[in-house]
């Protein structure tokens, strides 16, 4: 009961993706069963979902489920997570890849992420009814892994406007902001609302960019900040401490 392990993001995810090997390839049958399982989870949660339920939803026999997932429920749940994480990042890639400037890529990326997560049928059921299954994967040490994976995946899309290290930092920061609002919703800050995200990005993430400041009517009256100081902050102007270990802790070395 509820003992199925749900690995939302494995620490070695980017590495596995790079090698192109998971526990098993994403065959059509695996995906079909994972989708059937997701349907069950959205209806009744993980604890109450049995392999019989999944077989029925997929229109196949229990034996077939076991043949595809010899590990039973745990393996099946991992496949659900793998499939959904892959879909999540492909959707993000589609939106972020089409953006034409830094503000846009952040706004569409964060909005899409928030929408995908809040509107996800299985995840919203679990956060509401079985938070003990999901939260351990989104907080403390596991949140570091989620941040590392999100940053590794989304940084290349920011790399069109930022250098490599800066892109990774901003990507992690954006993921952190989204995650924070999802786990702990603020009054009046709905990140599925693009206009609200744009304000957040303009107010807190991009404030040191003089060009952007001038184009924002709310800040138009404010003269651009001098950019000659290394301590001005914001994007692209970091005074890094002289350390060589600025890597993600969850990253495969």
């Amino acid at each position: 009961m509820g003992s199925a392990r749900l690995e939302l993001v494995r620490g070695d995810y980017p590495d596995r993706a790079a090698r192109g090997v998971g526990e098993a390839a994403a065959t059509p049958q695996r995906v079909r069963l994972a989708d059937a399982a997701l349907l069950c989870i959205a209806r009744q949660g993980i604890a109450k979902t049995t392999l019989d339920d999944v077989a029925r939803a997929a229109g196949c026999s229990r034996a077939t489920v076991y043949r595809v997932f010899p590990g039973g429920k745990d393996g099946l749940m991992s496949a659900v997570v793998d499939t959904e994480v892959a879909r999540f990042f492909s959707a993000l890639a589609l939106r972020m890849g089409a953006a034409s400037d830094l503000e846009e890529v952040l706004v569409v990326g964060m909005t899409e992420a928030a929408r995908r997560v809040t509107e996800h049928p299985g995840l919203s059921f679990l956060l509401e009814r079985e938070p003990e299954v999901v939260l351990p994967h989104l907080t403390f040490g596991h949140m570091d892994s989620v941040l590392a994976v999100s940053s590794t995946f989304t940084a290349p899309f920011l790399g069109r406007w930022l250098d490599h290290d800066e892109a990774k930092r901003v990507a992690e920061w954006a993921a952190r902001i989204v995650l924070s609002h999802l786990l702990c919703p603020a009054d009046g800050v709905d990140l599925t609302d693009e206009a609200r995200v744009r304000r957040l990005v303009r107010t807190f993430v991009l404030p040191s960019d003089p060009a952007r400041r001038a184009s924002d009517p709310q800040r138009a009256a404010v003269p651009p900040r001098s950019t000659d100081s290394a301590h001005t902050g914001g994007i692209g102007k970091i005074d890094r401490p002289p350390r060589s270990t600025r890597t993600h802790k969850g990253e495969a070395s």
């Binding site: 930092r169 920061w173 107010t203 807190f204 993430v205 404030p207 040191s208 404010v222 003269p223 651009p224 900040r225 001098s226 100081s229 301590h231 001005t232 902050g233 914001g234 970091i238 005074d239 890094r240 401490p241 350390r243």
Partner: peptide, 20 residues
């Protein structure tokens, strides 16, 4: 690092033009 973090990810939005 904390000092950098505060200057890069926490303060810029709330400082406006104030030079740190």
């Amino acid at each position: 690092e904390v000092r950098t973090l505060v200057r890069v990810e926490l303060l810029p939005g709330v400082t406006g033009v104030t030079q740190i």
